[in-house]
Design a protein around this nucleic acid. Structure first.
Lengths: 211, 211, 211, 211
DNA sequence: AATGAATGAGGGTTCATTCAT
DNA sequence: CATGAATGAACCCTCATTCAT
């Protein structure tokens, strides 16, 4: 189990992390420069999520961000680095939610996790797709592992603790299974879209945890 | 349910389909045509699975297949078309298994499905990755819809019938949930590799179905 | 002295090597492909010699060779590799002259060397400039060292032997000094052009060797 | 001889010019302007000498000089102009040495020249490389001609006078030959490094002038 | 059926230079 | 005097696809 945390995270770990990915308020930009950096980041996020990392050209990012191609390389040292930047940004966004959940009663946390995840699966489908694509392409991720690990480590820790407190016999396996369920639902929804019977499945999952 | 068949299939549908994807014997190819075409297909399959579709060049396919670049475009009208060819090939391979399972008792089918899936997740990890990558990129797939739909339709039908016979209250949702679980486990294994507690999770799933 | 031959060669070593760099006859091209490769090579040679390696774009090479940019990378794996190709080509061209001189009496060889060099300095000034530029930029050369070493090794060996046979007291140093003289004259001619008093200097050098 | 002064100078002319290129003391700069300008100049000199003009970015100059990129263009109108600035600086530094040598006896001047040159070749190898690179790329130099001509004119005049006083029959040609020898040795040393038999060659040159 | 030479659009990236502050 | 964000052209290189043989 020792090397465990060095592995890349499940998409699930992120899902809750990123749940409330609201655009930052203008007051948050301390300097004009951050505005540009953020324009690039947001443009890239949208494009990566929409068409995938490989299919997105730096040119299209520049165009969408209404910025010169050269400026991208003023703020990021490579296309890869933009992806890292996006992750860093997303991590930051999700931190509060993380801490908030940590202090709720176990049943509520599980409940929240399921709610968040299903909401995320529907409303952030494209971002979900990006995360899954990255999760299964370990070569591309490289520099992202640290961030991914941090998120997963924290989150799986919380989940396992919850299941312990709820007296599950296999709290660790149960945490992984719940993750798998939610990831699998995300995958199914990406493939089938509106026809995927989300509600019924959600109900089945909730029943498993007595919700 | 109307647009249902226009959507691309779950990876799960494929997994069992493709379980025993034995390579054809050479004698099966009647003409030289088929030999060359198949060499290209097999080379592409291995490369796509190993490095991903985007990262695989037609050049490398030609090299691996020991065939000229031009010949690829004699048999396939584009790189995309090779991917379609791979799917068609895989479908064909899996048909017999499909029919065989259809005639077993319901509990045995579920059992087989779980066994096959876990085996597949471990031993065909790269192919699994390819299938997931394709499943979540519907734009790329385009020409594959018909094949994918056929597989999914048949398979989900079988599963739903099984759960009906086993008196599950929500047979359809249960079928989707089981698919989601297995897909989610596949995703987790791809992300975490050896550290993923496959056995314990498998046990939990089996317990759910009284196995 | 052991590691001696691993060092990059003096421009002088090349000068005689390359003396008769006549364009190959058409009969030499066995296949159509070699024509294209050679067009690229010759275009690059002219451009590198004229504007320097760094200032020559692959685009301009393609344009001059009347070939698509992509074709360059069909024959050469990088811009560097084109330079290597040029060297290989030049080496081949110079081999015969090399062998011919090896069998002449020592005085004649020295005489030829001086004649060739001065002729080369004047008539292949741009190529000379390219060689000097490469000789003093060891980082760029990398892959060229082997070729350069081969040329230098052979040539300095011949020169030292000549001076030994002519009973010079310091045959090795004398070989290096003659090389330095001729290299220095080449440098001076490149800097001053027509105003450089080539004839008078040549006379002084010849007198030193009793010619 | 008419167009003579329009040509760029030999490296040799510079070598002695620049022999004792001691950095100015800080007190010499009367205004802050000069301090910044000089920081840029010194940074550029070191980088140009080390990696070559083309391979040195204005960015790296700014970084090394601990100055903003914009400031460079406040003091210099282009990257080229920095190079000109370096030359102007070097010229200024060398003037005193020049005059000092002018008043020594002819044999001593030749002796000094050779000593200086060999010392320079070894201890200022990188700067030597820069000078040679510039000397053979006349297009790049453009704006430097005046400075270069001045240096060469003065220096060759001195040398020719020396050889006249020493009763050489071809004083002009001899001056050029000595220049060529020293330049050629510089070239050889740059190419071969430590393996170049500097001492033995120096001895041969000294013998030629009865030193 | 088969080759591989040839194409050209586009890829990510660098960099001298400008400009608003 | 000084900053560094911003520009855009150019750079080397890749690659799916076509075509003459």
């Amino acid at each position: 189990m020792k090397e465990y945390y060095n592995k890349t995270a499940l998409a699930i770990g992120f899902r809750i992390y990123l749940y409330n990915m609201a655009p930052r308020k203008k007051e948050d930009y301390r300097t004009m420069q951050e505005v540009s950096r953020n324009k690039i980041l947001m443009a890239a996020l949208e494009l990566f999520a929409g068409k995938g990392y490989a299919a997105t050209s730096t040119d299209s990012i520049a165009k969408k961000a209404k910025v010169s191609k050269g400026l991208i390389y003023h703020y990021f040292k490579s296309k890869q680095d933009i992806l890292s930047g996006i992750f860093a940004y997303l991590m930051e966004e999700g931190n509060e939610l993380m801490n908030a959940n940590n202090q709720l009663p176990p049943g509520k946390v599980i409940n929240n996790l399921i709610d968040y995840s299903f909401d995320y699966i529907v409303n952030k489908a494209k971002l979900n797709r990006l995360l899954i694509a990255i999760a299964i392409q370990p070569e591309v991720v490289k520099g992202l592992k640290e961030e991914l690990d941090k998120a997963k480590e924290v989150w799986m820790g919380i989940m396992i603790r919850m299941f312990k407190e709820l007296n599950f016999q296999q709290p660790e396996a149960e945490a992984y299974l719940l993750s798998a369920m939610l990831d699998g639902v995300g995958l199914g929804y990406l493939a089938l879209g509106e026809d995927y019977p989300l509600k019924k499945i959600k109900r089945l999952i909730e029943e498993r945890y007595g919700l």
